[in-house]
Design a protein around this nucleic acid. Structure first.
Lengths: 136, 136
DNA sequence: CTGTATCCCCAGAGATACTG
DNA sequence: CAGTATCTCTGGGGATACAG
């Protein structure tokens, strides 16, 4: 894994790709970062097409990496809220330029996501707390 | 809150993940971006462990996405130089924070690539410009 | 040197059903 | 609601050999 050359160290990247090179990881990080707190099913709805198993899988992986925080309430019905850890927030920040690049690239190409994903029902606005950090 | 300033549309990300979620794509983009021009075997050596098939595969994918430019010289022996397109450069820029995040995270976590490639800790060796900075 | 051509293999992603 | 439990199955990635 280590290249003995003196030029460039990609080792940290090798660590990172195990996180971000997961198909849904960045999406999920971004979604959670965008919402502050979000529940399992909310994530699943937003990621139209993901299966609970896959979502749980990625979620657990991200927890293991200390990127997201899982807070479960012992209620009926059960409620679990996912939020970003400090590390996760930093990752979310770091990923933002990427999203902007993708947006720009997408818009010049073909703007394939008009309407359908922009009218998502974000911000449940429960109570007074609706401040989403990470969202400038 | 999904207003102009802070709305994040994940749809473009769905397009992007097909690019960056490839195991080696970001690595290769970074490497090419770091070197300006680089040859097939040079990339392969830096990505210790990658097989020519995989590299060629990612490379072709990247070409298809107009992220890298392939310039082949009809020489003996043949020479091919890869460089970033304008889009690729932008991607490289967008990926930079990610790398920095990864570096930071790696260093606090567990120095998994100590010695061979993190030599900047050991004997800075004069104030001359070292080349092992990934992105400065 | 720069790739193709194969073959293999398993991790990851999907679907579905089920449980606490 | 929030996941697990299985099963499948594709395709990405690795290894090796070979070609232009």
């Amino acid at each position: 894994m280590e290249n003995n050359s003196n030029h460039i160290c990609l080792c940290p990247l090798e660590g990172i790709i195990n996180i971000i090179a997961k198909k849904w990881a960045i999406l999920i990080i971004s979604i959670i970062g965008h919402h502050g707190k979000i529940r399992f099913n909310d994530i699943m709805q937003r990621l139209d097409g993901i299966s609970p198993k896959t979502l749980a899988d990625v979620l657990k992986n991200l927890q293991k990496e200390n990127l997201i925080h899982r807070e479960s309430f012992s209620e009926i019905p059960p409620r679990v809220e996912y939020s970003l850890t400090d590390d996760g927030k930093q990752l979310c920040e770091a990923v933002r330029p990427l999203i902007q690049w993708a947006e720009k690239r997408d818009s010049v190409d073909k703007h394939r996501c008009k309407g359908s994903c922009h009218d998502e029902n974000v911000a449940p606005k429960r109570g007074t707390q609706q401040k989403n950090e990470l969202i400038t």
